[in-house]
């Protein structure tokens, strides 16, 4: 999948300033600053336990940071009421590392769940069209009646992505989208991330340590080391770096 960049550097969709989070005596994020521009695919690269997933969970309000501010689409997510936060969450898609598909529901019910929960009335035809479009976007048009347990790892990932697309999010957060998948399926998912971004004109933060995924998807990369943004740049720049900490990722 060839990537066509359409980044609007005048419009920030996500702005994180001085974000700090500790669990007990363990400092997970230390004074993190991150900006995401409209149409951009930002990769956050780091070792396991470096605080990448905590960063995403702070953005979506699942983890409350100790310090700092997070602005999504111009709204300070930390000062919102529950209802206001739910409205902002409609504009943020989250692809969980474990897919987080609801075991007790069919694929179709999984996809319909966010539509039903946000209190917007959709006609049956609108729901049918949204489900059909989301399933076609991820290349699995005939899986609506299946249960998650009947799907392979790659298919589950695609369905989880289809679910995040149901509300047409402006920002999509991917938590290790290719973890646990074989190289071919990983590449398919990476290409899918690019095609989704181009089709829905969304902006994405992708957390990964899969360098093939980074190469395919990244517009910009932030290297996270010890809870801090260690280095920032595009794939070309960072892959040529002489810094041993950065080099170790590109070997």
């Amino acid at each position: 999948m060839e990537k066509i960049s359409s980044i609007d550097y005048d419009k920030k969709v996500l702005e994180i300033k001085h974000l700090t989070k500790s669990f007990g005596s363990l400092d997970v994020l230390c004074d993190m600053n991150v900006d995401l521009y409209k149409g951009e695919n930002l990769i956050v690269l780091g070792k396991s336990g470096s605080g990448k997933s905590v960063l995403l969970k702070c953005i979506v309000g699942l983890v409350v940071p100790d310090k700092g501010s997070i602005s999504v689409l111009g709204h300070d997510v930390l000062s919102l009421t529950t209802d206001e936060r739910d409205k902002i969450r409609m504009k943020i898609g989250f692809l969980f590392q474990s897919n987080a598909l609801y075991d007790s529901m069919t694929v179709r019910d999984n996809l319909e769940f966010p539509l039903r929960r946000h209190g917007i009335k959709y006609s049956k035809k609108e729901v049918d069209d949204l489900v059909k479009d989301a399933l076609e976007s991820v290349g699995l048009p005939d899986t609506g009646k299946k249960m998650p347990s009947e799907l392979s790892g790659g298919m589950k990932k695609r369905i989880a992505l289809a679910r995040t697309l149901m509300l047409r999010p402006e920002v999509i957060l991917y938590d290790e989208p290719t973890t646990g998948l074989d190289p071919i399926t990983s590449r398919e998912i990476s290409n899918l991330i690019v095609s989704v971004q181009q089709k829905y004109k969304s902006s994405s933060v992708i957390i990964t340590h899969d360098m093939k995924c980074v190469e395919i998807v990244a517009d910009r990369i932030i290297m996270l080391i010890d809870g801090k943004a260690y280095k920032e740049g595009n794939y070309e720049e960072l892959s040529k770096s002489d810094d041993p900490q950065i080099k170790s990722f590109f070997i």
Binding site: K57, T82, F96, S98, A100, D103, F113
Partner: peptide, 14 residues
């Protein structure tokens, strides 16, 4: 443990 409860919260469900 499979993050389904987090997914529910992100979907605007308490």
């Amino acid at each position: 443990v499979t993050e389904q409860i987090d997914a529910m919260e992100v979907s605007g469900t308490n």
